[in-house]
Design a protein around this nucleic acid. Structure first.
Length: 460
RNA sequence: GGAGGAGUAGCGAAGAGGUCAUAACGCGGCGCACUCGAAAUGCGUUUACCAGCAAUGGUACGCGGGUUCGAAUCCCGCCUCCUCCGCCA
């Protein structure tokens, strides 16, 4: 959630942020006129850049009622508080007279009426306030100024590459064939038991999933200084509102029938909400947590995407990194968090690149996101294996996560929250199979994983 | 699932229709004094949120209703925790 006070005092910045987020439709008459006056280029990114340049005139339909709702709300607050003050004064007078044994029954007249009037106004205010809050809750975070303008991943900016994809000199197989041949990956039985987009690992395949998980957790806790947590994988809707999955994205989630319980789409939800409604000690920041959890996603709307293999599943394992920082440190901490995730790929010897997501490719709650993409020989491309984001105070405001110094009149401030995959375990598993295969379909187990596999050097 | 008990500041805890909600009292935190320094001691200070330029005003005693001129206090429903029983890994 954005700060309404910031929105109020920086209306142009706010509008520009929303245009960057793609909330200005090109076919709105006003926006259309602006575009036509400025040459109306073909490319959507150029269109967006023009609207951004003319932010003051451009229309962002979705947010139009915000100002009115806010104004009305504040008027109502003033009105109801005035009456409350009157009531409080009268009640104090009654109490004083009672104590002094003076007659006060005459003061009762009209009090009931006033009380009812206040109740009415309070109810109306609540209604107004919930309309306002709902709109505000549905407005995405403002992108950081360094975020590239863009519609989709075509505008993402590559930041760095590490490692060199191997030349194989033979026809590489993908992880589906490799896994099937090794007898460690089974989609047919998973479909029988559950359905599409599920998989079963068996034997050393299952063991390697566990090895990867432990390797990641050990590295983050022992080498990178994170504290491990093992949270619930079922959460309530309040937690999902805190991190931004609700109210807007409920179709992406699995809900338990008959309960206010949801399966987590990522450990970000329980781990960020670990400190919901709390005030942290400034001297404890930054706080760094890591967690392994299974993650559950409905993948509604991704029909036909990544249907082969383990890349996109309804259930997958992930090790997550979460940070709570002071606002002035959050971008420095984002770089560090990203490097902690990168370290896993480097230790595993998997070639990867880092991209900075464009303004519309970013998630709803993020202010800035880096994706780590691992090389997949079978697809001859880099594929997402981690997403590292700074949410600034967007989640902290929703979840009520604040910090405060220990001095006497220290101010309470919102923390900044960050998180990143460190890493997606299933995608790491398949990247190992594909990158470390030989011509016969044997898989070399990366050195750092061998101790976790009882010294085993190959899957064969 | 059944029976009891409890939920008030960071923690413990008082308050039992109005004059005791910033909320007694104790602990803790912060500052100062004393000290070479520390401990001990003494003094001061220490809730959060909302509206407002400010002065100031408002809200909050687990949550939601009700009774009343007025509710932390009385009544109803819910949630969480504790104890016992049942069931269970």
């Amino acid at each position: 959630m954005l700060d309404i006070k910031w929105i109020r005092s920086n209306p142009e910045l706010f509008k520009a942020a929303m245009i960057k987020r793609g909330l200005a439709a090109f076919d709105h008459p006003t926006n259309k006129a602006i575009l036509e006056k400025n040459g109306n280029p073909e490319e959507p990114v150029k269109k967006m850049a023009i609207l951004l340049e003319h932010a003051s005139e451009a229309v962002v339909e979705k947010i139009l009622p915000l100002e009115d709702l806010d104004k009305k709300r504040r008027e109502m607050i003033a009105e109801v508080e005035k009456l409350q003050a009157e009531r409080n004064t009268a009640n104090k007078e009654i109490a004083r007279k009672k104590a002094a044994k003076e007659p006060c029954e005459d003061l009762f007249a009209g009090m009931k009426q006033m009380s009812n009037k206040i109740k009415e106004l309070e109810k109306a205010l609540e209604e107004q306030d919930s309309q306002f809050t709902e709109l505000l809750m549905n407005i995405p975070n403002a992108p950081h100024e360094s975020v590239p303008l863009g519609f989709d991943d075509k505008s993402n900016v590559e930041v760095k590459r590490w490692g060199t994809p191997k030349e194989y000199g033979f026809e590489v197989k993908d992880h589906v064939d490799l896994g099937a041949n090794l007898g460690i990956l089974d989609f047919d039985r998973a479909a029988k038991i559950s359905g599409a987009r599920f998989s079963i690992l068996t034997g050393n395949g299952a063991r390697m999933e566990r090895a990867i998980m432990n390797f990641m957790l050990d590295t983050h806790t022992q080498k990178h200084g994170y504290r491990e947590v093992e949270p619930p994988v079922i959460v309530n809707s309040s937690s999902l509102k805190g991190t931004g999955q609700l109210p807007k994205f409920k179709e992406d989630l699995f809900k338990l029938e008959g309960y206010d319980y949801w399966l987590i789409p990522t450990a970000e939800v329980p781990v960020t909400n670990y400190y919901a409604q709390e005030i942290l000690k400034e001297s404890d920041l930054p706080i760094k947590l890591t967690a392994y959890t299974p993650c559950f996603r409905s993948e509604a709307g991704s029909y036909g995407k990544d249907t082969r293999g383990m890349i996109r599943q309804h259930q997958f394992d992930k090790v997550e990194l979460v940070k709570f920082t002071k606002p002035e440190d959050s971008y420095k901490e984002l770089e560090l968090l990203r490097d902690d995730a990168e370290d896993i790929l480097r230790l595993l010897g998997l070639p990867y690149r880092v991209v900075c997501l464009s303004s519309m490719d970013m998630g709803f709650s993020a202010a800035k996101t880096f994706d780590l993409e691992v090389w997949l020989p079978s697809q001859k491309m880099y594929r997402e294996i981690s997403s590292c984001s700074n949410f600034e105070d967007f989640q902290a405001r929703r979840a009520g996560i604040r910090y405060k110094g220990s001095e006497a009149k220290a101010k309470t401030n919102l923390v900044h929250t960050l998180n990143g995959s460190g890493l997606a375990i299933g995608r790491t598993w398949l990247a190992i199979l594909e990158n470390y295969q030989d011509e016969g379909g044997r898989i070399y187990i990366p050195d750092v994983l061998q101790p976790y596999m009882g010294g085993l050097t190959h899957l064969e």
